[in-house]
Design a protein around this nucleic acid. Structure first.
Lengths: 339, 339
DNA sequence: TTTAGCACTCCATTTTCCTAAGTGCTGTTT
DNA sequence: AAACAGCACTTAGGAAAATGGAGTGCTAAA
């Protein structure tokens, strides 16, 4: 994309059009730029038509002003845009989140993305999972009564999962203790996503040696512990914000978008990424799989025991400079997080 | 409302109109009912006009067919509607959820409401909290390193909460153990929503006697354990479903509704209830605080250790009979739940 | 290379017209 | 008194026509 060569004035013009359109959502006319560029509307029209030939601008109809094409946004993002400075106000709001130590890391990320969503009026998504390098540190079983127990698994990164354990028939507390001891002995150190296979292939064969009512106990534990780390956690903030943008003035379009936000598969799919170096990626319009009229900005994160993707979805006509700066700020802070 | 006296034919007519309108979303004409009621359209028009005088029917414009008024729906729900039988298919889908023992009760409720939402195309809401009668059974603290710990609180009903505990300065493991012991001794049996005040007024004054670095430890634990049972858990399923209904054909109306679904305060507010006997309540149109064009059906539940409200939001033109039956089925099953 | 001028295009809004689907009412029949 | 046929009347909603305005492209001159 850097291979398109533009004159200084063309760059200036493209910049003005993109930024004006981002602000107003209306096609930009040649006349409106005369004063700023210090030349006549006819001259500007010639340049505009040049930029249109290069595929950077579009018209909504034959005699309309110009709007940026996808390629135009892309050029703007890649070559023209300057990251904006964070205002003290924005920074302050985010800082209070990152300072709260007793929040779990996942909550910190979710809250900070919610703030960004509120600041920008776009929709934020956080898609987190327990990182597979989480290793079990301890398995704890707390009895509630003769048949019901709470099983708790804690990992070295501080992740906690708990499940109900229900026995089909009563088992002596002694045996349960033995079972827990056995599990602890063999499972501590196992990555959390391998717990169930470890249960099945290493523990199941040997428990009969140690435990009398092995079948009941094994089944109960297996049921409880079998689905760890498979459930990605989706957090979505303010899908409605986007609908307020003037370009979404069509009922079916709105319905379509709201439906997409309701569909967890589609949202999860935003994650599935080809190149996952830790950088912030911008997918404009048809570059993303979510919706051709939208831009998706996303990046992966990995912080103590949690990993996932944070994303912001807005109209193609997005305040790219501001968003990039905000996301960068969050990313830096996530990396800093100790807990 | 039972004080409106209608002839048999009027009841029959109202029933037909309500049910036809629920199905088609179009004003019902006199002519369309001739065959069923075995009389001429003029006769039906006379009866319709009578029902309109009673406030049970409305017109969308002077020469339109009739639609039910709010009062009409109310009369239908109170006096005419018969609960529908559950189809085997619907029941089957719900049963698989209630049979899964290792799901936490809250997940069971959420999942079953999601199924109802999918079956009816309305929006389901589950608003759950930890019931205040949950009493602490055990406090567990697992160290991750010298400064970071996981604090876990388990209640007699099987509810689990966990928090990060971060120490400002290193404290000997011995002291931490003592602290945990102390907390366990004094806090076991306390209702979960009183934990923080118990910490402040009963434990804070006496820890200096037992523990050297009491300030650091107290602060860390207090921060971690202070906000139990205050965060209601909201689960919303498919707000977009409602927007597909033909009566929502206005962009601003759609935006307004989607915004409401995005606003957690508004959603939470659906809960706040005056009369909370355990029955299913129907709030038609202006009877609810959510939106005049919608109906909210809700009921409180209380099951082992969790309590809250389940609700279904749909257009006023809702399949009341079916919804009632489905919700009843869920309610019965929640009450049965042992875990 | 820039610009003034003009013809042209298309959108958007308003106006008019039309039809189909209803109703209310009146006078007649049962 | 209840039911009905017939007719005048109302409105939504869609299609077609009229109008104004904001832009553009292009040509010819500076």
């Amino acid at each position: 994309m850097g291979d398109i060569l533009l004159s200084n004035r063309q760059v200036e013009l493209l910049k003005l059009i993109v930024e004006d359109y981002i602000k107003t959502a209306r096609p930009v006319s040649s006349k409106s730029l005369c004063e700023i560029l210090n030349c006549s509307s006819a001259t500007i029209r010639n340049e505009m038509s040049e930029l249109e030939n290069l595929g950077l601008l579009e018209k909504t109809h034959t005699s309309s002003g110009r709007i940026p094409s996808e390629k135009g946004y892309r050029y703007y993002v890649d070559n023209i845009m300057q990251p904006k400075e964070l205002t003290g106000d924005d920074m302050l709001k985010l800082q209070t989140i990152f300072k709260n130590n007793s929040l779990m890391i996942s909550d910190t990320i979710i809250k900070s993305m919610e703030i960004i969503s509120d600041l920008t009026h776009y929709t934020s998504i956080v898609l987190g999972t327990t990182a597979s390098e989480n290793k079990v540190t301890k398995v704890e079983v707390v009895p509630l009564d003769d048949y019901r127990f709470i099983g708790i698994v804690i990992t070295d990164k501080g992740h906690v999962e708990h499940r109900n354990i229900v026995l089909e028939e009563a088992v002596s507390l002694e045996e349960i203790k033995q079972m827990v001891e056995l599990i602890n002995k063999l499972i501590v150190g196992t990555p959390i996503n391998e717990v169930s296979s470890k249960l099945e292939f290493e523990i199941k064969p040997i428990i009969p040696q140690y435990i009398h009512q092995h079948e009941v106990l094994y089944n109960a534990f297996y049921n409880a512990f079998t689905d760890f780390a498979n459930n990605p956690n989706i957090s979505l903030h303010k899908p409605s914000n986007i609908l307020m943008e003037p370009e979404f003035d069509n009922i079916d379009k709105i319905r379509q978008i709201v439906s997409k936000f309701d569909d967890k598969d589609i949202i999860s799919n935003i994650t599935s990424d080809d190149d996952d170096d830790g950088n912030i990626k911008i997918y404009i319009g048809s570059e993303n799989d979510f919706d051709d009229d939208m831009t998706v900005i996303k990046t992966k994160y990995k912080a103590n025991g949690e990993e996932g993707t944070i994303a912001l979805i807005g109209p193609k006509r997005m305040e790219y400079d501001r968003v990039i700066t905000l996301l960068n700020y969050i990313k830096e802070n996530i990396d800093k997080e100790k807990f």
